[in-house]
Design a binder for these strands. Structure first.
Lengths: 197, 197
DNA sequence: TTTATATTTAGACACTTGTCTAATACTCTT
DNA sequence: AAGAGTATTAGACAAGTGTCTAAATATAAA
């Protein structure tokens, strides 16, 4: 990303960011990511290519920014301190809700991109990263003989696998049913969690 | 892949396939995948670009063929019929051995591509696919309330996660230690397996 | 309102991509 | 050794990529 999201953007910058991300979401609802060029994104957004490259490295970078926009609602942050092993389901539920809110968009995108590994990887990896980040900072809660990083990776991968199963492979599943999947795949007795002190 | 790997290749075709795959492995040991162009691959191989496109769709397709070459030694096939739940470790060990045999190559590749998600995804996804394929055909061995596809995905993802931890994130780990990781992450009592009939 | 700063823009640059053609050369069988 | 079937090749094509300039605009803060 060329543009610094740290500072709060000016009016014009925000307009430009919005235009490009909305165009991208529109285009991936209509055709395969591979068939979308930066030139086309710019034509649809009625911005010149030079402006695109002021903000993004390439179309994948813009795509990542789109996930960022969608995920902004998550509000998982360091303050969400862990009070019980139910925390995993709290994380899971937040992402589940976001995906559910954006289900019609996701479904449209999948019609054209269900076999595009670049698209799927981009999407899954984005959410893996943000969950991994918050989860790893709570890992002192866990009692395990495993390397903490490895355990965190495994938990995150498992949560995302279930979300992928539900939303990308489109197996309608209630939150309750999904919680059962978590219990089975991560151990129904959750032996890896410390007793509360 | 433009070329049909089903039929056995002629002498010339084999020579060409070898030249391109050897060049690719050489180049990814030297620089980032993103910085390698089809033109460069062709210059190093002293083949014209037209020949490249006779065989491959693009550089990612060639990369996939490279993993195919490396994985050919695996010899996991349908005949390897499952006799006990130890089968998971059999699969794991085969890939572990292949990665170990190619460790010096992997290490060189990672120097330049440790942050290239295209490279890592290509590598991991290739091996996920081949393990998934053989594993899914043995899933009647498992006793579970989960959808079989989901359980298979989870097992494969977990095995690959451990291999990624060892070989890509380069935490030296013995096969025995890795087996312990499998036991813990997939359930030390392996409750998901049917009793033998 | 002015000014410093940030953003947008047109156009040019060298380079890469994937496809196509038609001529040439190889190599496998018989 | 001849012919059928494969494989290689040069070069051209339209399109896309990412970078760079320098001028023109827009914006935020004093």
């Amino acid at each position: 990303m060329k543009y610094d999201l740290g500072k709060k953007p000016t009016k014009g910058a925000q307009r430009t960011l919005n235009a490009f991300s909305e165009t991208m979401l529109k285009l991936i609802s209509q055709k395969r990511l591979e068939d979308i060029s930066v030139s086309e994104i710019c034509e649809v957004s009625t911005f010149p290519r030079a402006t695109f490259y002021n903000y993004f490295d390439d179309k994948y970078d813009l795509l990542n920014y789109c996930w960022h926009i969608i995920a902004e609602e998550i509000q998982i942050n360091e303050e969400t301190k862990i009070t019980s092993h139910g925390i995993l389901k709290v994380y899971f539920d937040r992402i589940y809700d976001i995906f559910m809110e954006n289900k019609s968009l996701l479904d449209k995108v999948l019609v054209n991109n269900n076999s595009s590994s670049a698209m799927i990887n981009s999407f899954i990896n984005y959410f893996k990263e943000i969950i991994h980040h918050v989860l790893y900072n709570s890992m002192d809660q866990f009692e395990t003989t495993l390397p903490l990083e490895l355990l965190a990776d495994h938990i995150v991968a498992t949560l995302l696998l279930i979300l992928e199963w539900i939303f990308l492979e489109q197996h309608d599943t209630t939150k309750q049913q999904a919680h059962q999947y978590i219990d089975v795949l991560l151990g129904s007795d959750l032996p890896k969690f410390k007793a509360r002190s």
